[in-house]
């Protein structure tokens, strides 16, 4: 059982504006635990510190205070210990149009992590890369290996990015808004893929999003962040159905709810569009 634990982490950025310095507290006293086979959703608006937490977990930034523990031991910061950490913890970026190098082929993006983490040798690397592509439903895999990112659609690119994150054989996967840049029609496919991989590999997953609906659907626990702090946490259904924090209620209200736009409803009723009973008959009440 792999667990990645964040204990009271803080991150403060020092901003320089000419000679004046100011501090920005991006993350304040956040703790959580990612365990194998469970998905934790981190929900919040833009600038609430969600992506900073992803960077801290990936060691692209280091916490100002607080600790990150992998299986109870402090995480490795450099050298072989860092490589070992990267074996276990990987990430899927938000924007699939920015996370693949336009100069390199799809194969390059998969071969490098495979070789770096000793998951393949020069002889077997192409076969292993093709296997990874099959796992994310990109087939025929061989035809994708030599293609460049610009020849792929957004959904295909994000699948490649997921395959790359899986290449080192991670136990913890951080998905930073993995579908927010994608076309609505392919979002569900990518989310279902992530959910399937999580089940198959028993991954500990951190799903960062601003969408409460998918957070409820795909995760076991939800953490709601506001201005760098966790304002609410709990089992997914509890948070959605029985929100405690004022901010969570606002967030829930902000989501468009079918049946609240009266003009749209009236038009739909006039045209006889099929709809749930409680919406169809509201006018009569």
């Amino acid at each position: 059982m792999t667990t990645l634990t964040a204990q009271n982490i803080h991150k403060t950025y020092t901003l320089r504006n000419g000679l004046r310095f100011s501090k920005l507290q991006a993350v304040k006293d956040v703790s959580f635990e990612l365990t194998a086979g469970r998905t934790v959703a981190l929900v919040g608006q833009s600038g609430s510190g969600k992506s900073t937490i992803a960077k801290l977990l990936m060691q692209l930034e280091h916490p100002t205070s607080g600790q990150l523990l992998l299986d109870g031991r402090p995480i490795g910061r450099r050298g072989a210990a860092l490589t070992a950490y990267r074996d276990d913890v990987q990430m899927v970026f938000q924007d699939p149009f920015a996370s693949l190098n336009p100069f390199h082929s799809i194969g390059h993006h998969l071969r490098r992590p495979l070789l770096l983490h000793g998951k393949a040798t020069a002889k077997t690397v192409d076969a292993r890369a093709a296997e990874l592509l099959e796992r994310v439903n990109l087939s025929p895999a061989a035809s994708f290996l030599e293609r460049r990112p610009h020849e792929l659609s957004g959904g295909q690119r994000q699948r490649v990015a997921i395959a790359r994150a899986l290449a080192p054989g991670p136990k913890v996967l951080v998905a930073d808004e993995p579908v927010s840049m994608l076309d609505v029609s392919v979002r569900l496919g990518v989310l279902n893929l992530l959910a399937r991989l999580q089940r198959e590999e028993q991954l500990a997953m951190l799903y960062i999003t601003h969408d409460l609906a998918t957070a409820r659907h795909f995760s076991d626990e939800i953490l709601v962040m506001y201005k760098g702090e966790v304002v609410e946490r709990g089992a997914a259904d509890d948070v959605i159905l029985n929100p405690q924090a004022e901010f969570t209620r606002t967030l829930l209200k902000a989501a468009p709810e079918p049946g609240t736009n009266q003009r749209f409803l009236a038009e739909a009723r006039r045209r006889g569009v099929p709809m749930p009973d409680h919406l169809a008959h509201r006018e009569d009440q």
């Binding site: 990936m58 692209l60 970026f93 490098r112 080192p168």
Partner: peptide
């Protein structure tokens, strides 16, 4: 993509 290759090690 540069961050990603850092993460890849």
């Amino acid at each position: 993509y540069v961050q990603a290759s850092k993460i890849a090690g």
